[in-house]
């Protein structure tokens, strides 16, 4: 790269970069650091301790958090799996379906929920469940999560699939593979990085969703985000920082895997 176009030579580059990083990460850093605080106060530092981590698992609120974590992870797992399966079939239809006249509208409809304000989606989902008389509880959360996870699972899968030449499937069929065999033996393995990436993205989106969950959950059914919000309403305690830090860790790991997998090339 020429030094003229290298942004590092621009005036103020360093200052702006540091400012952005501070604004983005200072709150997270504070939460992470203070989750290891020995003090019961959230602002006074009294030394390093794992006290609040053990409080999450054994403290007075541990039962509530444990149930919330089970709900959160099971919903994320099921919702991401179902959404990914739907997204694979949708991507196959849209990328390999030729030029049918509903192609563009379909593509728009699948990805629109990402653009719609989440609060609108939440209200609409709630009204829908009420209208069909669906009692709110674990199941309503799961169905809502499946629905809003689909576009997140769909996008990486479609992106991957568009790069796969359809002569591979033609070659497979030319070599006596039926349509189903060509899909399973050739197309599916080539799509796999996109599928894994889409699944992980859907999983993370489901795991940390608050707005929609809060609207459609029944009384007494909590996920981690709603349980944390419930606790915070009674004052912020350091155990919230510990649980947030753990959730942050899970998210970072999964997003990293998703990124690495999306770059992974199973043809080398």
């Amino acid at each position: 790269m020429s030094t003229v176009t290298d942004v590092r030579t621009y005036r103020g580059f360093f200052t702006v970069t540091v400012l952005c990083l501070v604004i983005l990460y200072a709150p997270l850093a504070v939460v992470t650091v203070y989750s290891f605080n020995a003090s019961a106060s959230i602002t006074v530092w009294e030394g390093l301790s794992l006290r609040w981590y053990s409080d999450v698992f054994t403290g007075p609120e541990s039962a509530k958090f444990k149930q919330a974590a089970i709900n959160s992870f099971s919903i994320a797992l099921i919702a991401a799996s179902v959404a990914t399966a739907i997204a694979v079939t949708a991507a196959t239809a849209i990328v390999r379906g030729g030029r049918f006249w509903l192609r563009l509208p379909s593509l728009g409809l699948i990805t629109l929920p990402i653009m719609v304000p989440e609060i609108v989606l939440a209200v609409a989902t709630l009204i829908f469940f009420n209208a069909i008389g669906f009692t709110r509880g674990y199941l309503t959360i799961l169905v809502a999560h499946i629905a809003f996870c689909i576009p997140f699972a769909y996008l990486p899968i479609q992106a991957r699939m568009q790069g796969i030449d359809d002569t591979y499937e033609q070659a497979a069929m030319d070599l006596y593979a039926s349509r189903a065999q060509a899909f399973r033996r050739v197309l599916l393995p080539l799509m796999m990085p996109g599928i894994i990436s889409g699944f992980l993205l859907a999983f993370i989106v489901s795991l940390d969703d608050f707005i929609i969950t809060n609207f459609v959950k029944g009384a007494g059914v909590e996920t981690l985000p709603t349980a944390i919000f419930g606790s915070v309403k009674q004052g912020i305690k350091p155990n919230i920082m510990a649980i947030s830090t753990m959730l942050l860790g899970v998210s970072v790991v999964m997003v990293t895997i998703s990124y690495v997998v999306s770059k992974w090339d199973n043809t080398k």
Binding site: T167, Y168, Q170, A171, A172, V186, P189, L190, N266, T267
Partner: peptide, 10 residues
């Protein structure tokens, strides 16, 4: 035998 060979890359 395809023009771009279409060998299964995986």
């Amino acid at each position: 035998v395809f023009q771009n060979y279409a060998l299964f890359p995986h």
